[in-house]
Write a protein that binds this DNA or RNA. Structure first.
Lengths: 229, 229
DNA sequence: TGTACATCAGTGAACGCGCGTTCACTGATGTAC
DNA sequence: TGTACATCAGTGAACGCGCGTTCACTGATGTAC
């Protein structure tokens, strides 16, 4: 191995370590991530970090991208691990995977799905990874629609909504009826609403049995969407 | 009017003005509210604010309480303005009121329903005002259940969930079946999921017709809950 | 293989800024006799 | 009604802290001949 790539590898490891330390800091500081604190934890001087990230916001962006991808990986893997014909099993598995990931990485979840960080604008690279979980959900429904086990409810979609959704299906899910997409989006909203409520403390006193509650609620959504039992 | 109460009134007006200025700052700074910035905007020295609020967190708490109450007022008023027998109309009105309030006060909404502020613990006084919107939703369904126009779906509630919900109904909504409460909670989760998605940018590129989308989605939830059309 | 040079990582000091909170103080406003 | 006193609002300086970012620098590591 040429010496140059050793340096490159060390550099890549440093970047990884910086991100790992920064992730730990997210847990206590939220999005008020401090470069200096990260540098301190790494036993470096704060200016040294500028060798690796041109600014604090770039570090934040890297963390966001990684988090989106970790969440996407988890959801897709959970879906793929279930018999493809077991639509309801896939739905529950995907939802649970999202929740499990969020519970395991609450600070990163808050970074993705919490209030926007003041003064920080997410770059466009985040759009695609952010779409992975809803895309997985649509995929489950799409399979069911393709083999006839999921039928389309006769929703009276208002025309502007139908048109908006038609653009989405045309680009990403050709052939999918808009009203089916609308219902999957209800499920997608519900899923992250449930996780946010749980993580942000909305269920604190009211619902001690969080997991059972979560499964039941996602089950209700599966009914609404028309997933066969 | 005795002179003492003039002083008291001036004091109350100052407190109101401080909160109003602080609310404006929330919009740009998010929860990183700066006492000094508020004082500057009021043409005072920062230490003067300590005559009115013992600490920054107390000011934040006051803002949170007011925001919960403003949202609660809006939702309850919208519900009350509709013919009580028009359950679906009440549902839509309550949901829209929550969305309208959130759109008009995005920073305060984020304070209530966004990621928790690091290092800040909401005091117990916030619990009751925070319950007002879901309580309104339950009220709509409860009326329908009482006069038989909303029937209870035969959900197979897992026992721990049923028990959790039974405690809630026993305390707040005696006689309401747990499975009905579970569905209202789905609607409640959906409602704030929708608002958060919209405000936090999740629909940015995908759904331009936000209001129609919102109404359609809350309509889907009304179906799930069993509100008569 | 050895040597001159270029690249790169990390240092340490500094700039300029902001923050929450405390404290002794000045004046004005209200209270009690 | 007038006066002595107490209360309160607001000032200004200070404490001690933290932050992101820049910049000239030292050494070590890698490259090219």
């Amino acid at each position: 191995m040429p010496a140059a790539s050793i340096r490159a590898r060390v550099r890549a490891e440093m970047i990884d370590e910086i991100k790992a330390v920064a992730r730990r800091h997210l847990a206590t500081d939220g999005a008020n991530l401090s470069l200096r604190a990260v540098a301190r934890d790494m036993g470096m001087v704060s200016s040294a970090l500028y060798r690796y990230f041109p600014s604090r916001d770039d570090l934040l962006t890297a963390l966001i991208l990684e988090a989106y991808d970790a969440l996407g990986d988890a959801v897709e893997a959970a879906d793929a691990a279930v018999d493809p014909r077991d639509l309801r099993g896939r739905w529950h598995a995907a939802c649970r995977a999202a929740r499990d990931w969020a519970l395991a990485h609450p600070a990163e979840y808050a970074l993705l799905y919490g209030s926007p960080v003041p003064g920080y604008a997410a770059p466009d690279d985040t759009v695609l990874p952010a779409q992975r979980p809803p895309t997985t959900l649509v995929g489950i429904l799409g399979d069911g629609y393709a083999d006839g086990r999921v039928t389309v409810a006769d929703d009276d979609l208002p025309e502007p909504v139908r048109a908006d959704l038609a653009e989405i299906t045309a680009g990403l899910f050709p052939g999918l009826p808009e009203s089916l997409l609308a219902r999957v989006m209800a499920g997608w909203t519900q899923l992250f609403g449930l996780i946010s409520f749980e993580l942000f403390g909305r269920l604190n006193r009211a619902v001690p049995h969080r997991e059972a509650y979560f499964d039941h609620q996602t089950g209700l959504m599966a009914d609404l969407i028309g997933l066969p039992r």
